[in-house]
Amino acid sequence: MLVLSWFQKFCCRFPSIQSKNLAYLMATYSEGKGKAKSSGVSLSVKEVKPKGMPPALTFYSVTLPKGLGKGDSFTFDVLAVFTHSLRPFPEKITQADIQLVIFQDSAHFLTPYVVKFQSLSIKLPDSRIESYTKLENTKLHGSEIKYGPFENLPSFSFSPIFVHFESNQPFAVAKELVREIEISHWGNVQVTEHYNLIHGGAESKGEFSRLDYQARPHLRGASAFRHLVAKLPPRAHSIYYRDEIGNISTSHLWSDSKKVGI
């Protein structure tokens, strides 16, 4: 009797509460050894819908470069980028308040396979943490929370966690972007971009005080927009910019061999 045991696809999945905010998903691996080792070789990733799986999960398959037999191993990296994963709480703050947000995830890697060993690290922008889920083997080191290590986790293990922490970075959200490109007969290319930007973090509560903004720097609104940065091609010239209410008077234009910045 001949028994073959091998597979050529790996399955990863996310709870639907996360997958709806998935902006980018990529799987890569390194091939070769020593100095000849190359990194960043892409693997094919696509969404799949296995039968009999709960609708609250979204599945993606990663195609491996070759089949794996019993005892074989293959190492690859999966990069997932999510947007709008941080929810401001409270949802409205005054001009003098700091911005607090909530992050939700699972301490266990959600997979249909049995996990022999796994750990999770959450690195925060600041060491001020209002609260966080405490499980067995949970450690806090400054601004980093470590869950695990966990061993011999059954398939589809899920352990919800939340972290409530300070994040005073502005949440720049482009609700609409229109790019107009005009090419002349002389080889010049004129690019005009129209942005409709909003702050996606906590909303302002109460009236804005210009006096406090100028006289009390610490009451300027920790998460407010103070500036915007644009990186343009190095040969960009004749640059202008304005907003809906008129010209922008405070700006700084600089350039180097690789880019032009505003």
Rank of each mutant, 00 (worst) to 15 (best):
K9L: 04
C12I: 08
R13H: 01
S16F: 15
I17Y: 12
S19P: 01
K20R: 11
N21Y: 15
L22K: 04
A23G: 07
L25Q: 07
A27L: 09
A27G: 06
T28F: 15
Y29E: 06
Y29N: 02
S30E: 15
S30T: 12
S30G: 11
K33I: 09
K33L: 14
K35P: 06
A36S: 15
K37M: 15
S38Y: 10
S38N: 05
S38D: 08
S39C: 10
G40T: 11
G40D: 10
G40W: 14
S42T: 14
L43T: 08
S44F: 14
S44L: 13
V45N: 04
V45L: 14
E47C: 02
E47Y: 00
V48T: 10
V48C: 02
K49V: 03
K49T: 03
K49G: 01
P50T: 03
P50Y: 09
G52L: 08
M53H: 06
P54D: 05
P54T: 09
L57E: 00
L57M: 11
L57K: 01
T58S: 11
T58V: 08
S61P: 04
S61E: 13
V62C: 03
V62L: 02
L64R: 01
L64T: 01
L64S: 03
K66F: 14
G67N: 07
L68S: 03
L68E: 03
K70W: 10
K70R: 13
G71N: 12
G71W: 13
G71M: 12
D72F: 08
S73V: 01
S73E: 09
S73I: 00
F74D: 00
T75R: 09
D77Y: 13
L79P: 05
A80L: 12
A80Y: 05
V81P: 00
V81G: 00
F82A: 02
T83W: 06
H84D: 06
R87C: 04
R87L: 12
P90E: 01
I93E: 02
Q95Y: 13
Q95R: 10
Q95I: 15
D97I: 00
I98S: 07
I98F: 11
Q99T: 05
V101P: 00
I102H: 05
D105S: 12
D105G: 05
D105E: 13
D105M: 05
S106L: 10
A107I: 11
A107R: 01
H108M: 08
F109T: 05
T111P: 06
T111D: 09
T111M: 02
P112C: 15
P112R: 10
P112H: 14
